[in-house]
């Protein structure tokens, strides 16, 4: 367990200190949210209607954009190879790295999203449900980002390929995420079915992603 703790702590430290980490993801998120009204016009009613969906799309793109740093630097400098010879199996390393990615990208973005909602005239009643749905949903997004990063780790310019491969898989998380954000209009309804399905999606990926990611990493480390 201390192995995974060490890995998560190091990844967080790197995310804070290096370019392309938490700060960049937040900046990108903010930029998308600002550009959106410029693209579709300042109609307050329209913005209010699309705000939850728009925030989710922005979240999704920000998470995907930061996917590359999950494995790429460690693959390039040989750290991943050393980790493969360590006491923890690659499956555990993949899940630890996905969790570190969530802590450094998904979590801050999910906290920032409801606040940025003010820029889009978000219905104040939706702030809490949106925040909760994003906290949970971004776990699924980080897990899939981890899978995408593992699948393309040895490729130059894998960025576009990650988008093509992973964005279709984001659809369920997006649909139920938006639905959970807007369903509990009267307040956060934990038993709302969308939220439960969102949790089920997260659990499914928690099982599938480490297996698939570790298999991919082994193929690249050969």
């Amino acid at each position: 367990m201390s192995v995974l703790k060490a890995l998560i702590r190091r990844d967080l430290m790197l995310a804070w200190r290096q370019g392309g980490g938490t700060g960049t993801a937040l900046g990108f998120f903010l930029t998308v949210v600002v550009l959106l009204p410029l693209g579709i016009g300042p109609d307050q009613a329209l913005l209010q209607r699309i705000a939850p969906g728009a925030l989710w799309i922005a979240l999704l793109l920000s998470v995907l954009l930061s996917a590359e740093r999950i494995f790429q630097p460690d693959y390039d400098d040989g750290s991943l190879e050393q980790m493969a010879l360590g006491p923890a199996p690659l499956e555990m390393i993949a899940i630890a790295k996905a969790f570190a990615h969530w802590l450094s990208a998904g979590l801050p973005l999910a906290i920032a999203a409801p606040l940025l909602g003010f820029l889009l005239n978000l219905d104040p009643a939706l702030i809490l449900p949106l925040g909760i749905a994003m906290l949970i949903g971004s776990l699924a997004l980080s897990l899939l980002a981890c899978l995408g990063a593992a699948i393309t780790v040895g490729l130059r310019r894998g960025g576009m390929l990650v988008s093509l491969l992973i964005l279709p898989l984001y659809i369920p998380a997006l649909i139920f995420g938006v639905s959970a954000s807007t369903a509990g209009q009267a307040g956060p309804d934990i038993t709302s079915s969308s939220l439960l399905i969102l949790i089920a999606i997260v659990l499914t990926f928690t099982v599938v992603v480490p297996l698939a990611a570790a298999t991919a990493l082994r193929a690249y480390l050969r």
Binding site: M13, R17, G78, E81
Partner: peptide, 13 residues
């Protein structure tokens, strides 16, 4: 212990 050509060193640490 495998010591290869890559350093496995993080420049920002």
């Amino acid at each position: 212990h495998l010591v290869a050509h890559q350093s496995a060193v993080k420049p920002s640490l």
